[in-house]
Amino acid sequence: MKKSLIALSLASACVLPATVLAQDHEPQDGVKVGKMSMMRKLGNLGGALDQQAAAQYVQTMKEAEQKRALAPDNHPQVIRLRAIAKKLIPFALPWNDRAAEWKWEVNLLGSTQINAYCMPGGKIAFYTGILDTLKLTDDEVAIVMGHEIAHALREHGAERAGKSILGNFAIKGAALLAEYNGYNGKTAAGVTGVVTNFTMLKFSRDDETEADIVGLDIAARAGYDPRAGVVLWQKMGVVNKKAPPKWLSTHPAGTDRINEIRKHFPEVMPLYAKAMGTSIDSLPPYRSNVKSIPDVNN
């Protein structure tokens, strides 16, 4: 498998000490999302989840290469993705102490899937389907990539794993308590399981919203237009008309995401204007490359 480590030249001020658990940090300006969940400690005991994620990423890349679905290092889209990542990563580091030690990678997989992800440790993958189907501009790629990087920075995978462990304890506990009091343990476990499932869906939607917000902040600081997030989800809405109802989905509805993105324009547009060396009032509208989607103003 071809190596795809991103070579980063970071100023010494950006290098943060590695810690067993990332400390809670937020830039002084920009968006505010609060501390990370303590559940991530339970979900990543001894770094087990990080190790599993790294192994899974390597396996996925090997399988893709065997199927000739792994784009080579000289592929134009790979070069493009890595160039965008190189601009984003320095602004991701303040969100997680451990990120400066991650061995960042960016790969492109040939698939019609409209998907991208960033595993713990900075392992990023894009599918050709999301680039081609949505006709993503560089700004829109940065919004997607920033979102996925934010999941890793905020350790959402470990958080969900911890909540899942806690949920399983609750189900088993409910069954034992019911049987102790003379009731049907299986019924009690089933009811508790349903409640736990809906709770986990809500947790996951919250993670998506948080990743949207943090991703906007990172992209804006790197010089990518946050307003591209509005166009991105308008494009996604066109190809995702058969999405499940919001209350049964792990992702917020597209209109909700657009409203949330717009709500944070006052926090991220100054970051973007600063990166571009201009004032907010001097910024032109963000123009979509799809004629049916209108321009987005501040």
Rank of each mutant, 00 (worst) to 15 (best):
N96I: 01
R221A: 01
W95S: 08
P120D: 05
M39P: 00
M269C: 13
T112D: 15
F91Q: 01
A220K: 04
D212Y: 04
T187Q: 09
L42F: 13
R82W: 03
G146K: 11
G129W: 07
P244S: 14
A116N: 01
P245M: 10
D225Y: 06
L108C: 09
G223V: 09
G157A: 13
R205Q: 11
I6T: 06
Q51M: 13
G47I: 10
T192R: 09
L216N: 00
G122P: 07
S249E: 08
R287K: 14
L109N: 00
Y127I: 06
A125L: 10
A253Q: 09
Q56F: 04
L134S: 04
Q51W: 09
M36W: 05
F198S: 10
Y286M: 12
P120Y: 06
L16W: 06
E210K: 00
F265S: 05
G229D: 12
A228P: 03
I79W: 00
F265W: 10
A92D: 02
L177R: 11
T209L: 12
L81T: 09
M39L: 15
S12K: 13
W247H: 12
D295N: 13
P76W: 08
C118H: 05
G157N: 12
S4P: 00
G190K: 07
K274C: 02
R154D: 08
D225K: 03
L42S: 11
K123W: 05
Y286F: 15
Y57H: 12
D50A: 11
K163H: 07
C118E: 05
R205C: 09
V231H: 07
N240K: 15
P94T: 05
F203S: 07
R82H: 00
Q77S: 04
R160P: 00
E26Y: 03
V191W: 05
G190H: 03
I84Q: 02
K67A: 15
R40P: 05
G223C: 08
L166H: 06
